[in-house]
Design a protein around this nucleic acid. Structure first.
Lengths: 303, 303
DNA sequence: GCCAAATCCGAAAATATCTTTCAAAGGTGA
DNA sequence: TCACCTTTGAAAGATATTTTCGGATTTGGC
């Protein structure tokens, strides 16, 4: 009973590339070799048997099977099927070329195109990898919560604020904390039925883990939104929502794509909650629209 | 050496349904059963083993293999791979169809798909519509600015903060103001060579226009990031960067897609500035990475 | 209508592929 | 340096696929 760590139910083909990136850091050297081969040439690998892939990567059958397991499939056979699916998809999808990294001397138009493409990719990966069962559970908990506390520092703080802003608009009691001390102070107030959400890309940001731990200890329903579902933060999380990890470059810090991914998750969460609480959410939304109307110049529609 | 009659070289997955129809008349009764099952539910059949498919169709393994051969594959294994590919294709082919609005009773998985799709659309629209000449001018001004002030309230405030955070990290003096009074107070300090950026989706948010006007009057280079380039805010803007306006629905407030669009613009701006100031930006970036390292738990790779 | 020849079909053997086990190699901290 | 834990691959074990082969069914001729 040693190798049962991946319990994710849906090994969707599209999510594979994203999953490889997410899990790569936790893999052992030989497993990374296999994962790379698989992510790099899905079509080619789909044509190989376990033995073939083991030889290609210079590893053993056992390692190949282990990698398949880690990626969320019951065995190599299923990974192979997913690979075939992925290959067929990108065959028909034919990615629009601009996959290169952003360089220092790229003209501004290229920057725009590459950045937009990368973020689109990040969105697709995130959506494909998102565990909707977990998300559903979080939505249920949040919709019924007495109050919702959100922890995030740095770039993640903004995501937290965004979520808090939106939840407030539909009548829920939500607060985002970016000050670790205040976060802990507030976490102490939480109890069963409340929800605490920690947002951290690295999964190991102490300033965010600490308040989540306190909330967890006080019986609140805890949620981690992280790019490292195996990181320390998950220890204290009843539910883990995984954001995708895109390759980063010198000019494109990880914070950028992780933010995109986090925002999508947070938006989904928000919409889910809004659905559940539609009776109260809808009037609250229109009320806040009206309240803001007068802050815009009368000629709101422009010329 | 009895059953080699099919010599077609490429058993392309997409052509499978057609092939089944073409060959159906030449097939024997049991083979037709198998072929039908395969053509009718590729995804389902891809999940079955030879034995499983044989049972499902009430035939034998041998027949299944024979059918696979007839369809042009070396054996059942390969048919199965093709089936998985086909399933993935029609799966992804169906995805772009989720253009419908998000409804109150949409299952959570649909919400995720629709939202991700919409945001991808927004990104593509924004990138296509973005005026790179204007953007280039803004980049030039920002890279050389003595200081950069950013105005935004509500959801746009977060975008402003995001930009300020990032610019600070590469050594520029940037401040985001969401308090209108403080914003105006600070705008008074600006002078020629400084840059003021107003972010407003509606283009008519008084609280943001006012500080921009002050900055404009004091000779600063002013920029408007707005979804309404013809709105009042542009009056006081030397450069206007247009964000895209996606349709919104009751459950999906405009703030959501405008935020995505604004973030892309702001990211492009950031990268542009980072390119121009690469000499100082690169060391500043790595310095901030290192400074943060100790805030993460040492056991980064988790359990 | 009856028989023989050809064809079709599935059970089970043979083979290939995948999975598990186990012990050795390699690394890590005391 | 040693003991312990992790990682790894060889080989045994389990499944899945392919082939074989004889019985069942159909077809065509008389």
């Amino acid at each position: 009973m040693k190798e049962i760590f991946s319990v994710d139910p849906p090994p969707v083909p599209a999510a594979l590339a994203a999953k490889v990136r997410t899990l790569a850091p936790t893999m052992t050297r030989s497993m990374q070799l296999v994962a790379e081969a698989v992510a790099g040439d899905p079509a080619g690998c789909a044509a190989l048997t376990v033995t073939g892939l083991a030889e290609l990567t210079g590893t053993s059958e056992a390692t190949v099977v282990r990698t398949a397991r880690l990626l969320g499939y019951p065995g190599y056979r299923d990974l192979r099927l997913a690979l075939a699916g992925l290959a067929a998809q990108q065959q028909s999808g034919r990615a629009p070329a601009v996959t290169a990294d952003i360089a220092v001397d790229d003209p501004i138009a290229d920057v725009v195109a590459k950045l937009a493409y990368d973020e689109q990719q990040t969105l697709a990966d995130t959506a494909a990898a998102l565990d909707t069962v977990q998300l559903g559970a979080v939505v249920t908990a949040a919709a019924a919560a007495r109050r919702i506390d959100i922890y995030g520092v740095g770039a993640s703080a903004l995501v937290g604020m965004d979520l808090a802003q939106k939840l407030l608009r539909i009548g829920l009691i939500a607060h985002a904390h970016s000050d670790p001390h205040l976060a802990v102070t507030n976490a102490v107030q939480l109890r069963s039925g409340d929800v605490a959400i920690a947002i951290t890309h690295s999964g190991s940001t102490g300033d965010v883990i600490e308040p989540l731990r306190v909330a967890f200890d006080h019986g609140a329903t805890t949620v981690a939104i992280t790019g490292r579902p195996d990181g320390p933060v998950s220890q204290y999380a009843d539910h883990v929502l995984t954001t995708s990890t895109a390759r980063e470059s010198e000019l494109r810090p990880a914070a950028m794509s992780s933010r995109t991914s986090q925002l999508l998750v947070v938006d989904c969460l928000f919409i889910g909650v809004a659905q559940r609480t539609y009776e109260t959410a809808a009037p609250a939304l229109s009320a806040s629209y009206e309240a803001l109307a007068h802050r815009h110049s009368p000629r709101g529609t422009g010329r």
